[in-house]
Amino acid sequence: MKATQYSWLRESELARLVCLVPVYGPDGGNYTEVWFDNGDKVTVRYRVPTVAKNTAAFLGVSRHQSSAAWHRGKRRHGPPIVLPPGITLVALPVRRPLYRDHGGIGYVVLQKIDSWERIEEGEFRTRLHLAGGHRLNCLLKIETLELRLLDAAKVSHRSRELFEKLSKHQSTRIPIPFCLSEIKELTDPGGVCKCANSSRGGNVQ
């Protein structure tokens, strides 16, 4: 992951993420346009699957989640990607690529979808209205789009429900062997720790 290409991939900006859109650059390259809810757009010189993979990795998860606990049954389309905390990426066909291996799938953050409508503009059959005033055309018919969004909503709900159940059985207490005052007592004025000479020990988890 090149830092120059992913300068937007940090906590403050990731919270504004709206979608990842496959685009062709002026040089003919197959890139990704990243949209944010403040209206900004950033072009990343990598394909959508790579950007989605690196975005998921930044949050400590994989984009390949077909075997995750919140997925049920088989799909003919790419499964939604659940990212912590509370971000669900929905895979949608948003362009007809020049070549099949160029890919036409984009990812939209479910929680940033305001509404959608039926349209007939060339091959596009629906349009999504997104946070930040963005509009994204989609190749799916409105009935199929709504089923895709419903599936993503169920996945989002099941994952959140699972995390909530697990959190109830987890202790939020992190055991520390020494309190701050004891640590200071074990350190001489010169800043040299005397812990090695102490008979008391413990494990930090």
Rank of each mutant, 00 (worst) to 15 (best):
E164W: 08
P85H: 07
G190C: 08
Q170L: 15
L150S: 15
E120K: 11
Y99C: 02
T144D: 15
G86R: 14
A91H: 15
K2F: 05
G122T: 02
I87Y: 13
V155G: 13
K184F: 12
W35D: 07
F124E: 04
K154G: 12
V90E: 15
E11M: 03
N38Y: 09
R96V: 12
P22E: 00
V204C: 05
C195H: 10
K168M: 10
A91K: 12
R47T: 08
F58L: 06
V94G: 02
G202Y: 01
Q5Y: 07
L17P: 00
E11Y: 04
A153I: 09
E11D: 09
K168N: 11
L9G: 02
K184W: 13
F36A: 05
G60M: 10
G133Y: 01
V21M: 07
R118C: 06
D188V: 02
I142Y: 03
S159R: 14
E182S: 12
G122F: 03
E33A: 10
T32E: 03
A52L: 08
N38F: 09
S67V: 10
I183Y: 11
F36D: 06
R63C: 05
G106L: 03
A91Y: 09
H102Q: 15
C193W: 11
N38G: 14
V23R: 07
L110A: 01
Q65T: 02
C19I: 02
T43Y: 05
R118A: 07
E161S: 15
K41S: 12
A153K: 15
N30K: 11
E13G: 01
Q111A: 05
E161F: 12
C19H: 06
G104Y: 06
D27Q: 08
L139P: 06
L139M: 05
Q5G: 00
V42L: 06
H77R: 15
T88H: 10
H102S: 08
R47S: 12
V90T: 12
R160T: 11
A3V: 08
V94H: 07
I142W: 05
P93H: 06
P175G: 04
K194P: 15
A196S: 11
C195A: 12
P26W: 06
H102E: 15
H102W: 12
A196I: 03
F163S: 12
I176F: 10
S7K: 15
L110H: 08
A56Y: 01
W8S: 00
E11P: 04
P84S: 00
I87T: 13
V44T: 07
K2M: 09
